[in-house]
């Protein structure tokens, strides 16, 4: 299965939710389930046969779920809300505001850098 390597970085205090580590390098599958499930589907059982899994190329929405399931250490509600980042968190993809890149639908490429910055911490 092919994977893509990414670099993610945190700012504005968001790193506190991620073991106080400012940056991570990680690999995610290039093709992922459309439902953003980041763990393997349970093996089929006689009464629950394996359903075919719909897939999509890995996008930022999937990355956010991956981060929640594998990197986030506490208080998930401060990071993710309704399948996207909580309002007040800025996202930049290769230093470009993700609002210009299709937000969660942006399809990740090998080597992309994604930055998450909280604006909610005091001024």
């Amino acid at each position: 299965m092919s994977t893509i390597s990414l670099k993610i970085e945190f700012g504005g205090g968001l790193e506190l939710l991620f073991a106080n580590q400012r940056s991570y390098s990680l690999s995610i599958p290039a093709i992922v389930p459309t439902n953003n499930r980041t763990t393997p589907t349970p093996p089929p059982t006689p009464d629950q046969p394996q359903e075919p899994v719909e897939t999509k190329p890995a996008d930022v929405t999937y990355l956010i779920h991956h981060m929640r399931d594998h990197l986030l250490k506490e208080r998930e509600e401060l990071f993710i809300e309704d399948d996207t980042v909580r309002p007040g968190i800025l996202v930049l993809i290769n230093d470009v505001d993700w609002e210009l890149e299709g937000e969660g639908e942006y399809v990740l490429k090998d080597g992309d850098e994604v930055v998450f910055i909280s604006t909610l911490h005091g001024g």
Partner: peptide, 13 residues
């Protein structure tokens, strides 16, 4: 602040 790489502190009181 991000684009200018300004040095600021961000932890909740």
């Amino acid at each position: 602040a991000y684009f200018k790489k300004l040095d600021y502190f961000s932890t909740e009181c």
